[in-house]
Amino acid sequence: MTDSPRLSPAYLMPGTGSFADFLAQQAPDLLPGSRTLPPGSAADFAPHATTIVAATFNDGVVMAGDRRATMGNIIAQRDIEKVFPADEYSCVGIAGSAGLAVEIVRLFQTELEHYEKIEGNTLSMDGKANRLATLVRGNLGMAMQGLAVVPLFAGYDLAARTGRIFSYDVTGGRYEETAFHAVGSGSLFARGSLKKLYRDDLDADECVTAAVQALYDAADDDSATGGPDLTRRIFPVVQVVTADGGTRLSDERVAEIADRVIGGRMTRPDGPAASLI
């Protein structure tokens, strides 16, 4: 940080369009990955964020996340938000160590906006996905001590005119997913659920419904994933990204869809039945 009133020469130097690179030169202590921890596992010290699902539909992509953060057997927060807009045409969801994950998301958001302002055009969808991979890779040391961050990235590719989904591993491996994907502790159940519910002719509303169903199934079988909280009216955070940009679905709209899902589960607790063949 500059505290002298005059801009330091580093600010005036032509060079990188990457905010993370600039941060590394000017204020490395603000970089999430630059800290070293004493040996041992830190996994139990910090809240963990859990399940995120994403699915594409004709006009774009939907991402939804449950609202629970856990610390061992304790529910650390029941209304945490884990799905964020990354820029106008993409969003990012996080599973893993909540504090670090939120910090990486903030850096990623700033990174995309910074590049756009400096260079005058937005990064390509693959460019964005690669930048996120680099940020996740920077956290590898922490991940090995139990503070892993595993994001799920989705957005509308303006060049390819389609919704796209990318998943990551803790080493920064980046994998493009087709149709749908889930990350976090409840992801196995969510993915199983989406396998049976997903069709490629879903519209936006149906796609959101499928995502909410998948989160319900994840919460059904995974204690770390929060189901719909009917008494407090806490429902998943849902982002919908299309060619017109990304929007967060209003709480009322998500509540409506969640109420319909719950209504269906009242008669069939395991959710809609898929045909056998």
Binding site: M1, T2, L12, M13
Partner: peptide, 18 residues
Amino acid sequence: FENLRIAGVRLADMRGYA
């Protein structure tokens, strides 16, 4: 002025992030 603009973006993003 391009240098000043870039410096301004860096300063603003740095403040906003920190």
